[in-house]
């Protein structure tokens, strides 16, 4: 805990943004450990994958494009400080009548939650209550969550996507300029990272990637029983492909899964999730009422949860990749412009 506070204070103080990003990753990871100690294994899993994983990748991708030094020496800003202290004071004031930490008689534990804890094994029939609540009781929130990710994917594409240059031209560029020259400097090309000389990363990546995918599949389909589910699996899948793109090259990764396919997949995941809801409506239930999907409610819940988790997984994988591609594609563009300037 104190580690957390120290970490965040340093984030505030440090001027090098790269260091700040790393510290943010550490804070996220520490937070994930704390979540485990607070029994929130699913959340810890996600926080580790997202906070310490994907978001760090995004920050680094951005820093490669924008430079990593903060200009000004941090100085004390009085206005914001007053507001922060005020907000903190209000919350501190509130803690004094808060229910005792960890007490089983708290309103949080006694009002709505017992139903989830006591009934979900019989109503839904899967052991992981977080998955039950996530995908069924509050399945609509999760549908919203998928939509949020979809929105982010669309938004990033809207903001960052440029017209693709012609493929042949791109390949010619790659042949003309030795890869090593592309590297170094603040605009170090992310797609040029895949160098033929880096034997060790190549071998390790080749060894790792299959396992990453298998693990992703396990997390995807084992979410009913243990921690995990579509979201975490999606992040893991995306991480696998991102690793591939980093070690080999973006163009190779694009050959494996093209941008068009990604856009299609982002949409497909949302449609799959919503489609389950629509089918349940057509079968006479309410939206996302899985009971009607099969003759037996429990079997229906199983099918429903499996399908929506799959939808989540697909959209998350594709959206993460779309965001990653968009950032890296931008790096290429800047570098090209720089090269044109030099010539």
């Amino acid at each position: 805990m104190l580690l957390l506070i120290a970490g965040t204070m340093t984030v505030l103080m440090v001027r090098n943004l790269f260091v700040a990003t790393m510290l943010l990753g550490i804070v996220s990871f520490t937070m994930a450990l704390i979540f485990i100690s607070l029994d929130a294994v699913d959340v810890a899993f996600t926080e580790a994958a997202v906070g310490a994983g994907i978001s760090t990748v995004l920050y680094i991708g951005t820093l490669a494009l924008v430079g990593s030094q903060e200009k000004e020496r941090p100085k004390l800003a009085l206005g914001p400080l007053v507001i922060c202290v005020l907000v903190g004071a209000i919350l501190y004031y509130a803690t004094y009548e808060m229910p005792e930490f960890g007490h089983p008689e708290n309103p949080v534990q006694t009002h709505v939650a017992p139903r989830y804890v006591e009934e979900s094994p019989t109503e839904i029939g899967i052991p992981n209550m977080v998955t039950s609540v996530l995908a069924s009781y509050r399945g609509y929130d999760t549908f919203g969550e998928v939509t949020v990710i979809f929105t982010a994917g669309i938004g990033v594409l809207l903001i960052l996507r440029q017209r693709r240059r012609k493929r042949t031209e791109a390949e010619k560029d790659a042949k003309d300029t030795p890869l090593d020259e592309n590297r170094g400097g603040k605009g170090s090309s992310l797609s040029g990272l895949g160098s033929a000389h880096d034997l060790v990363p190549h071998v390790i990546a080749k060894l790792l990637i299959p396992f990453i995918f298998v693990f992703g599949l396990y997390v995807q389909f084992h979410g009913d029983f243990g921690p995990g589910g579509g979201f975490q699996a999606g992040v893991i899948f995306a991480a696998g492909i991102i690793l591939y793109a980093l070690v080999f090259s973006l163009d190779l990764a694009r050959a494996v899964i093209s941008e068009k396919a990604i856009l299609f997949l982002i949409s497909a995941g949302v449609v799959l999730y919503g489609g389950v809801g629509v089918v349940s409506m057509l079968l006479g239930g309410n939206f996302l009422d899985y009971n009607v999907l099969a003759s037996d409610p429990i079997a229906g819940q199983h099918i429903g949860i499996l399908l929506v988790e799959l939808g989540v997984g697909i959209t998350v994988t594709a959206a993460m990749l779309a965001i990653f591609y968009a950032f890296v594609g931008r790096a290429d563009l800047i570098e090209e412009a720089a090269q044109r300037g030099e010539n």
């Binding site: 906070g51 995004l58 969550e145 949020v148 903001i159």
Partner: peptide, 22 residues
Amino acid sequence: SNPLPHVLILTAIVVGIATTAL
């Protein structure tokens, strides 16, 4: 432990990463 906050925070984490990306 109560699963409901876990579910809410899973959603909130996703919202967070979406905001970060954008």
